[in-house]
Design a protein around this nucleic acid. Structure first.
Length: 552
RNA sequence: GGUCCCAUCGUCUAGUCAGGUCAGGACAUCAGGUUUUCAUCCUGGGAACAGGGGUUCGAAUCCCCUUGGGAUCACCA
C-alpha cells in the first residue's frame, strides 16, 4: 500500500442520501481529489433488517448527480472497481471472521449469552441510578465448559471485545483536536451480533485497515465511537488513520435535520386541518390508519410524497434528491453544503468543484454545528442560474422537465422560448414551470380566481381593465404577424391610445386573461408562447367569465 | 443523569493556533430607486465577540468558572 491519501465514504443503505451525508461525501472526495488520492465508496449493510438494494442504488445516483465519483467501490456508471473489495460489508464476512479469530487467539474476545431483554433491564436500572450503563463482564465468569455447552446447544450469543485494562483512549482529531476519555467509560462492546454479522465497530475497523483508509472523515456522532475503534485497531495491530469529525447540520429551528421531518410536516398538517381520511384515496386506508396510530410509524417515501401532493403540502427538502426535484443545480447544492462547516477564506463563497478540490483542507473545517439556511441556498441558485448561458439553461431545464415535468418537456419547438422567457426570473427550475402552468392548460379549462390583484387589474378604477379588453383583443386579432415586435408594438399603442400611456394598465388585464393569474413571463413572451388563436380564445372566455360576474 | 464536544450579526462564516486597524464578507432584514406582473437589478442603513473572573501595557483571540446548545451512553450504522 502506498502512502497516498485514501478516503472513504461509508453510508448505510437506509434510504436516500441526506444533506449531512452528502457533505461528508463531498469533503472526503475533495480531500482525496486535491491530493492525488483515492476516494472509496463502501456500503455498510451489516444490518440485514435495514438494508435494501434499491436504497443503495439511490445513493449512487445522488452522488453522481452532485458530480462525485469514486475510484473504488460498487460499480456504477464509470465509477467503482478496486482491488481491496468487495465494497459491500455483507460480502466481507470471511474477512471479519479471520480477524475475529486473531482476537480469540489473543484472548481478546469472548462469547456472551445474555438476551437483549436482560441487557435492557440492566440499562434501565443504570438509568434510574443516574449512571451510564456499562457491560458487567458477567460472561467472563462463565467456565470454558459452560461456554462450550452453550454453543453446542445453539444458544443465541454475541461476541464481545475484551477491552485491555491498559487501553489508550486518546487520539488527535483533525477538526476537534486532542480528545480522550477515562478507561472506565469504555465497556466490553459487542463485535459480532447474534445473527453472525459483525457490528459496525468491528467491520469499520477491519475495512478501513484492509482498504488502506488514511483519513476518516465522518459525522460527529461517531466521535464517541472512535475510542472503540482505536482500541480495536491496537488489538488487531492495525495502523491508525487520521480522524476528522464533522459537526452536525441542523434545521433553522435547531432540531436535527432528519428524514423524520417530512413525516412530521405531514402529521402536523393532517392534525391542524383535522383530516380524517386519505384524500382521493391517495394512500390505502389501512396504511393511513397504521401511520396515524403511532408517531413511530413512518410512511414510505413514495406514500409520503403521494399524500403530500394530494394535500398540497410541500415537504421539507432533506435528501439530495429532494433538492434535485425542487429544481436546484447540483453544483450549487455542492457549493452550499461545503460552506456549512468549511470556508476557503478570503471572503470567497461561491465556487466550483475545481476550486474546492484545490483549496479544501481539514484544518479549515469549523467545529461548531451549522443550521441549514434555505434562503441562502436559493440565492446561490439564482446567481448560478443567471450565470448560465441561455443555451445551457435551456438544456438543463429540459433535462429537468424530462424527469419532473414531462408536460413541459413536450412543448416541442416552443420549449426554447419557454426557457428564455423564464431564465432570468427563475430561482429554481421548478419556478419556471410554476408560473407557466397556463402554457400546458387547455384553453377551455382555464379558470380565473378572483384574488385581489386580479380584481384590481380587471375590475377596479374608473377605467377597468375588463373594459379595455375588447378593443385590445380586436387590435391583436388584426395583427398580420404574431411576433414579439408586433405584439409589443400593439400593446404599446393600446397603452398610448387607451390608457394614458400606462403599459401596465393594458398588459396586466391581458396577462390575467390568458394566464389565469397575475404572474407570467413578459407579456410579449407570454402571447407568442400561447399563439394567436389561444390568446384570442382566452381573452374571449375571460371577458365572458367576468362579464357575467358584473351583471350578477 | 454520566461522558465527550461546541459557543463571533437572525443565519453561514472571516479573524483565534503565532494577543495590538472603527470585528470583514455573504444570505436574510429594513429604507429608497428601476421595472408591463412576478422575479430580478441598483443605492444605502441597522445588526455579533453568551456571562463572569483572571494573565497582559493591551484579550474575540490565552487560562478558569458559569450559562446555553449538541452528541453519545444498542446484538443501528
Amino acid at each position: 500500500m502506498t502512502n497516498k491519501v485514501r478516503t472513504r465514504f461509508a453510508p448505510s443503505p437506509t434510504g436516500h442520501l441526506h444533506v449531512g451525508g452528502a457533505r461528508t461525501a463531498i469533503y472526503c472526495w475533495a480531500y482525496a481529489r486535491g491530493r492525488d488520492g483515492t476516494f472509496i465508496l463502501r456500503i455498510e449493510d451489516t444490518d440485514q433488517k435495514r438494508s435494501s438494494e434499491q436504497a443503495t442504488f439511490g445513493f449512487f445516483e445522488d452522488l453522481n448527480w452532485l458530480g462525485i465519483d469514486w475510484d473504488e467501490g460498487p460499480a456504477f456508471n464509470s465509477c467503482g472497481g478496486g482491488d481491496v473489495g468487495p465494497y459491500l460489508q455483507s460480502q466481507r464476512l470471511e474477512l471479519y471472521k479471520e480477524h475475529l479469530q486473531t482476537l480469540f487467539d489473543n484472548g481478546l474476545a469472548y462469547y456472551a449469552f445474555e438476551t437483549p431483554e436482560e441487557l435492557n433491564e440492566k440499562r434501565k436500572q443504570a438509568r434510574t441510578e443516574k449512571r451510564a450503563y456499562r457491560y458487567d463482564r458477567a460472561a467472563l465468569e462463565l467456565s470454558e465448559a459452560q461456554v462450550k455447552a452453550n454453543l453446542e446447544a445453539d444458544m443465541p450469543h454475541v461476541i464481545r471485545f475484551k477491552v485491555p485494562d491498559d487501553a489508550v483512549l486518546a487520539f488527535k482529531d483533525e477538526v476537534i483536536g486532542d480528545v480522550e476519555i477515562a478507561r472506565s467509560e469504555l465497556d466490553d462492546f459487542v463485535i459480532f451480533k447474534a445473527d453472525g454479522y459483525p457490528t459496525y465497530h468491528f467491520a469499520v475497523v477491519v475495512d478501513d485497515a484492509l482498504m488502506g483508509a488514511t483519513d476518516v472523515v465522518r459525522g460527529q456522532e461517531h466521535l464517541n465511537n472512535t475510542y472503540k475503534h482505536i482500541v480495536l485497531q491496537d488489538a488487531l495491530g492495525f495502523e491508525r488513520p487520521n480522524y476528522a469529525h464533522l459537526s452536525l447540520i441542523f434545521n433553522p429551528d435547531g432540531s436535527k435535520m432528519s428524514k423524520r421531518d417530512k413525516d412530521k410536516a405531514l402529521r402536523t398538517f393532517v392534525k391542524e386541518h383535522s383530516i380524517e381520511s386519505p384524500p382521493n384515496g391517495c394512500i390505502p386506508q389501512d396504511v393511513w390508519e397504521h401511520w396515524l396510530s403511532s408517531k413511530d410509524n413512518q410512511l414510505q417515501t413514495d406514500e409520503a410524497s403521494d399524500l403530500a401532493t394530494a394535500l398540497g403540502v410541500s415537504l421539507p427538502e432533506i435528501n439530495v434528491d429532494d433538492f434535485k426535484a425542487a429544481g436546484y443545480l447540483p453544483e450549487v447544492l455542492l457549493n452550499y453544503l461545503c460552506l456549512l462547516g468549511w470556508s476557503p477564506g478570503d471572503d470567497i463563497e461561491q465556487f466550483d468543484s475545481a476550486f474546492l478540490i484545490e483549496k479544501f483542507s481539514l484544518d479549515r473545517i469549523v467545529k461548531s454545528p451549522a443550521k441549514f439556511d434555505r434562503a441562502k441556498l436559493l440565492a446561490f441558485n439564482l446567481d448560478a442560474m443567471q450565470a448560465l448561458s441561455s443555451e445551457a439553461f435551456e438544456e438543463r431545464l429540459l433535462e429537468w422537465c424530462n424527469e419532473y415535468a414531462p408536460e413541459f418537456a413536450s412543448l416541442g419547438n416552443r420549449f426554447s422560448l419557454f426557457a428564455k422567457a423564464n431564465h432570468e426570473r427563475s430561482k429554481t427550475f421548478r419556478d419556471a414551470i410554476e408560473t407557466s402552468k397556463f402554457l400546458v392548460e387547455p384553453d377551455e379549462t382555464l379558470t380565473w380566481e378572483e384574488t385581489k390583484p386580479v380584481k384590481k387589474a380587471l375590475l377596479k378604477g374608473e377605467l377597468t381593465g375588463l373594459s379595455l379588453l375588447p378593443e385590445v383583443a380586436t387590435r391583436l386579432s388584426d395583427l398580420s404577424e404574431w411576433t414579439h415586435a408586433s405584439i409589443d408594438g400593439c400593446m404599446a399603442q393600446c397603452a398610448e391610445e387607451l390608457a394614458e400611456g400606462k403599459l401596465g394598465k393594458v398588459a396586466q388585464p391581458v396577462r390575467i386573461a390568458v394566464a389565469g393569474s397575475p404572474v407570467s413571463p413578459p407579456i410579449g413572451d407570454t402571447l407568442v408562447l400561447l399563439g394567436k388563436e389561444s390568446t384570442l380564445k382566452r381573452i374571449e372566455r375571460c371577458m365572458k367569465f367576468f362579464g357575467s360576474k358584473c351583471d350578477a
